[in-house]
Lab assay of single mutants.
Amino acid sequence: DHDVVPEDKFQETLHLKEKEGCPQAFHALLSWLLTQDSTAILDFWRVLFKDYNLERYGRLQPILDSFPKDVDLSQPRKGRKPPAVPKALVPPPRLPTKRKASEEARAAAPAALTPRGTASPGSQLKAKPPKKPESSAEQQRLPLGNGIQTMSASVQRAVAMSSGDVPGARGAVEGILIQQVFESGGSKKCIQVGGEFYTPSKFEDSGSGKNKARSSSGPKPLVRAKGAQGAAPGGGEARLGQQGSVPAPLALPSDPQLHQKNEDECAVCRDGGELICCDGCPRAFHLACLSPPLREIPSGTWRCSSCLQATVQEVQPRAEEPRPQEPPVETPLPPGLRSAGEEVRGPPGEPLAGMDTTLVYKHLPAPPSAAPLPGLDSSALHPLLCVGPEGQQNLAPGARCGVCGDGTDVLRCTHCAAAFHWRCHFPAGTSRPGTGLRCRSCSGDVTPAPVEGVLAPSPARLAPGPAKDDTASHEPALHRDDLESLLSEHTFDGILQWAIQSMARPAAPFPS
């Protein structure tokens, strides 16, 4: 592969990997390779389809078979030569091979799209000592099968071997295949498990690692696999990028399955594409389908809103127990993405979901129960707010008499603000006073009005108090039968009158 990737590009890729991570280095090298001529790309395919690569990765054979028959990708048995050289000459001794072996032994695996480039050397060096003999053996194999790289107009793939297949390693990572398949204008990513390549439709969760975000852009890794992070704060999961590491605690105790298979379609829109997988259930989501939507993949363990709600429900009964003089119970939860139609709101002032922060849900004790107040519409209280300059209440639009249902020339009671006709409430011909108009209920007259088809109010509507207090003497005590009587009149003013009279009014101040 030294004929494909020059030394300066190799060093530039290593520097970019240390600065921005393996995914960015892979993407940059792939983009550079696509700008080369067809001879360089053909050399790339020839390096990929060597015999030892085909033996190690069985899924490469179907890719090789898909090439046109007129494309010669065979390799000479006596060494490598550029395709432009007409004579089959043995190339001179390859010093770059020693360079590659020494550099890969030092860096474990470079971040390139060629056999030198995919593992994360920093994480491997940190986690190597417990498994040094086995990992050293794996390093000797890295130059042979560490990076199976493929690129063409139909298929483009980048393979990364790992030393996680050490025997006896619980939940060992089998390997990473960062794979971009450009077929019919689409893009897919796969993962390699035990020599087999699994596409998103049959993606397997190998051991402790999972394909957290099938994305090839942005600074985030394709698999949430930063070796420096180790395990999740809650004892979460091992990262795919942690090559040759000792077994780590796999999943939280509440995880239903340690080796679950995540779905390959969004649980909201039932469509495929780039998904984020939940650590607590097999569901996966688009970032845009979450509520609120996320802009980037959160670091650490992530769970959907259903799993978060289940966790909150487990903690909430203990938080609601009476604990005198104790601060509110704080339950730190990872930043969760909410699927459509589901929402768990945190306290005000918290950062938005999706940031690399930890939301704190506070379970406050329930407030003391209070008697429910009568629910009145805002339009129902409008007549009470229509007060004239002299303190006389004006008529609201649409006000109707509670007896006849007519809204023409209605009066407004100064005591309960109900609309009424003087002739309907006082049919006996009582003279109307000039000021202080009161309806039949507030004036103490319980004589029913002779209106055909309208039920008369119940005599129990009024329960006047002592006459010594004029204001308190007109406080009506309405009961269920009074409400039914008012409802039978089918008037809004009657219902409003009952609601206003049912509310307690402050006692009249004593004259000074």
Results as ranks from 00 to 15, higher is better:
Leu496Cys: 05
Gly354Trp: 15
Leu437His: 05
Gly436His: 13
Lys468Asn: 10
Gly341Trp: 15
His363Tyr: 14
Pro317Asn: 14
Pro433Thr: 12
Pro247Asn: 14
Pro247Met: 13
Ala499Phe: 01
Thr357Tyr: 15
Pro383Ile: 02
Glu326Gly: 10
Gln260Thr: 00
Arg440Met: 09
Ala353Phe: 15
Ser488Ala: 07
Gly336Lys: 14
Asp264Thr: 02
Ala340Pro: 12
Ala251His: 09
Glu484Ser: 01
Ala463Cys: 10
Gly346Tyr: 15
Ala428Tyr: 12
Ala460Asp: 07
Cys424Leu: 01
Pro347Arg: 09
Leu352Phe: 08
Arg432Asn: 00
Ala504Gln: 07
Ala417Glu: 13
Gly300Lys: 13
Pro253Gln: 11
Pro347Thr: 15
Arg432Met: 04
Gln316Ala: 10
Pro298Lys: 06
Leu411Asn: 08
Thr430Lys: 10
Gly444Ser: 06
Leu496Gln: 00
Leu437Thr: 05
Gly336Asp: 00
Leu290Arg: 12
Pro457Met: 02
Ala399Gly: 13
Thr408Asn: 07
Gly300Asn: 06
Ser291Arg: 05
Ala396Ile: 12
Ser485Arg: 03
Val246Thr: 07
Ser299Tyr: 12
Pro476Phe: 12
Leu294Gly: 05
Thr408Arg: 06
Gly429Asn: 14
Arg270Ala: 03
Val268Asn: 06
Trp498Cys: 02
Gln313Glu: 12
His363Ile: 12
Cys269Ile: 05
Pro256Glu: 05
Cys416Gly: 03
Cys278Trp: 06
Pro374His: 13
Gly280Met: 01
Ile297Glu: 04
Met503Leu: 10
Cys269Tyr: 04
Pro367Arg: 12
Thr471Arg: 09
Thr408Pro: 12
Gly465Asp: 03
Val268Ala: 10
Pro249Asp: 11
Ala507Gln: 06
Leu364Cys: 07
Thr491Ala: 05
Ser379Thr: 10
Arg461Lys: 06
Ser458Trp: 10
Pro368Ala: 05
Ala284Ser: 06
Ser502Ala: 11
Val410Met: 13
Leu373Tyr: 10
Ser245Lys: 13
Asp356Tyr: 09
Pro282Lys: 04
Glu296Phe: 15
Ser379Tyr: 15
Pro253Gly: 11
Arg303Leu: 06
Leu478Gln: 02
Asp445Leu: 09
Ser443Gln: 02
Pro253Phe: 15
Cys266Lys: 06
Ala456Leu: 11
Gln497Glu: 03
Val315Pro: 09
His382Leu: 13
Pro383Trp: 15
Leu411Phe: 04
Gly391Ile: 00
Cys277Lys: 06
Ser431Gly: 13
Glu265His: 00
Pro249Ala: 09
Pro335Gln: 07
Pro374Ile: 14
Gly354Ala: 13
Glu484Lys: 01
Arg505Thr: 06
Ala248Gln: 10
Ala288Pro: 14
Leu275Ser: 12
Phe285Met: 15
Pro332Arg: 13
Cys289Thr: 13
Ser431Trp: 00
Pro347Ala: 05
Leu290Thr: 14
